[in-house]
Design a protein around this nucleic acid. Structure first.
Length: 555
RNA sequence: GGCCCGUUGGAGAAGUGGCUUAACUCACAUGCCUUUCACGCAUGCAUUCACGCGUUCGAAUCGCGUACGGGUCACCA
């Protein structure tokens, strides 16, 4: 009579290695007490999800702050969903955030002693372990077709039984070895299932690093561990990989909580110590009054590329995500006048238990705070790099005269409370375009937003006069005093109180002639400090603009 | 439907039985500053912690139940 040994040989004749050899090849890591080995293990679906960035940032931070190891593993076992080139994209996008793995998959080749770090290249390892499981009677080939499985599910529905491949519903679970061998020899397609000896009526407990103790029903389903394409399922790959890669802390989305008993069941069956788990809450979004997970199909902000393309500073994104992860981070940034994530002590215990709503307002707030504090030279470099990739016209504009653009960027920045009007690099072009003559000319052609209450003659004569009398190279009070003089000569008040006391005596207030100047120069009723603007524009350009507007006003 | 996780203001949240007349931050509103905007400053915004019952001298904090929200039950991860 044939035994499980024969079955294992028949199934995997090419597999010669043993688990012992693997244990020796991937020895326990020699790390100091408390050091955590964490990882980020995405599927290469051509897309870095915002929630993935969140999880990877947390994993990375934990490894770094405990003196451990953070590695990157590519989970490419779903060949149907695999998108070519995703590995590169994932690592390069993560790289923009400074989340670079200590070891793992890299487009140019694996780094580290616990590889391969791409699951499709680990078939040998999976099969070695599975072969052993079969020998021990803890795994078996299952010959059910999708139709068979469907029929089982329908039968379960009919009698209101729990769905799943377990107990007496597990059709091929109790086939004899001889029967199995016969079917295999007959060429019947098979998958390998794990043979659970769990009991659905019992509970399994584990301590989640974020939520504390969690109690779930014991796993009793015989999950598929090796698919018909010869690749493992997530459940098995996780157990096997994280064991041999010596991961100590599994950070993954909370959607994995319900399947944790399956993983624990397998760790037990293999006699391996299970790692600790930290199930990270999902980032949510409000949709018609209901919360739901950020969806890659429905929400632009689900893709990290969205933020990168619109030009959010990567540190700002990380800072925002950290403020969700540990809300005391915000207080910390205020107390320490720092947004340096490396200095902050992250703690899993302080994580909130339900998914936070993605808050664009708050992201924008952090982004403005951070952008306002980046030194100009550095900011300039970032804007330039971004523009080169995403806005050719803007790139051409700023590179045509870099010192000029730096001056523009620097407006109202060198002060304790700098201006904060850019949340992202793409905000800069529209707000600064008036500094470029051709752009300003277009605005003039489209019509300048002067208020109706000013008559054309006043606008024209005031600007005409001003074009020759504007002061340059003086300090702001002096410049403004000069401006007031011209205003007064054209019937405007130069003193607020005087105007308020007798508005009829004037054509307008200080703010009114200032506004006329502002509109003429910038094409808008709102702008940064006018004195800085005229100094940047220069005497010639200012005179040119004032004259052109003065003429057009009368035309 | 079974199981699991969760529920403090518009958002992120602090809070682990009396120190809370519920921090802090964003958003919002109003005012001040001011040549506009942005910045900055000041003030306001939950008499109440989903609801009910219970434990207790005392509960947002402990227990039970209900409601609601989320997740999960694949040869996807």
């Amino acid at each position: 009579m044939a035994t499980n040994l024969d079955l294992a040989e028949l199934l995997f004749p090419e597999v010669k290695g043993t688990i012992e050899e693997l244990e020796a090849k991937y020895p326990a890591r020699n790390l100091k007490e408390g050091a955590e080995v964490t990882r980020f293990a995405p599927s290469p679906t051509g897309f870095l999800h915002t929630g993935s960035l969140f999880t990877s940032m947390i994993s990375y931070t934990i490894a770094k702050t405990t003196g451990g190891v953070y590695f990157f593993r590519l989970e490419d076992t779903d060949t149907k969903r695999t998108v070519e080139g995703s590995g590169e994209q994932l690592t390069s996008q993560l790289g923009e955030f400074g989340i670079v793995a200590d070891e793992g998959y890299f487009p140019e080749g694996d780094k580290g002693a616990y590889g391969p770090y791409k699951q499709s290249e680990r078939r040998e390892i999976y099969k070695t372990v599975i072969k052993e499981l079969i020998k021990r009677g803890r795994a078996y080939p299952d010959f059910c077709t999708p139709e068979d499985l469907d029929a089982i599910r329908k039968a379960q529905e009919a009698v209101k039984a729990l769905p799943g491949y377990y107990g007496t519903w597990a059709r091929d679970r109790n086939l004899s070895v001889d029967e199995r061998i016969e079917k295999i020899k007959a060429g019947t397609p098979w998958v390998i299932r794990f043979k659970s000896n769990g009991d659905h009526d019992r509970k399994t407990k584990f301590v989640d690093a974020i939520r504390g103790e969690i109690e779930l029903q014991d796993n009793d389903t015989d999950v598929v561990i090796l698919k018909s394409d010869g690749l493992p399922t997530y459940h098995f790959a996780h157990v096997c990989d994280d064991h041999f890669m010596r991961t100590t802390l599994i950070t993954r989305g909370e959607e994995w909580i319900p399947s944790t008993p399956i993983h624990l069941d397998m760790f037990r069956a293999l006699g391996w110590e299970a790692p600790r788990y930290a199930h990270i809450p999902s980032i949510m979004k409000l949709d018609h009054g209901n919360k739901r997970k950020l969806s890659k199909r429905k929400d632009a902000e689900a893709a990290v590329s969205y933020f990168l393309e619109s030009g959010y500073n990567t540190q700002a994104i990380l800072v925002y995500l950290m403020s969700i992860a540990n809300s005391n981070f915000e207080e910390w940034t205020i107390a320490n006048h720092s947004f340096d994530l490396k200095e902050f002590t992250f703690s899993l215990e302080k994580m909130s238990l339900d998914g936070a709503l993605f808050d664009m307002d708050k992201l924008n707030y952090f982004a403005k705070e951070i952008m306002a504090r980046i030194p100009v030279e550095e900011l300039f470099g970032e804007v330039k790099t971004w523009a080169e990739k995403h806005d050719a016209e803007f790139f051409a504009r700023i590179t045509s005269d870099e010192p000029y653009f730096k001056k523009i960027l620097n407006i109202e920045r060198d002060r304790p409370n700098p201006r904060k009007d850019y949340a992202k690099y793409s905000d800069i072009a529209p707000l600064t375009r008036f500094f470029y003559h051709e752009e300003w000319a277009k605005m003039l052609a489209d019509g300048l937003p002067f208020q109706e209450k000013f008559d054309k003659e006043t606008i024209s004569s005031f600007l005409k006069d001003l074009s020759g009398k504007m002061l340059f190279g003086v300090d702001e009070p002096t410049w403004f005093a000069g401006l007031k003089e011209v205003g007064a000569a054209h019937g405007f008040a130069t003193d607020k109180k005087a105007y308020k006391a007798n508005p009829e005596a004037f054509k307008g207030n200080v703010s009114d002639f200032s506004e006329i100047l502002r509109v003429a120069l910038t094409g808008s009723r709102m702008s940064p400090n006018l004195h800085e603007i005229i100094e940047i524009l220069g005497k010639e350009e200012v005179a040119k603009r004032l004259n052109e507007v003065a003429e057009k006003a009368l035309a």
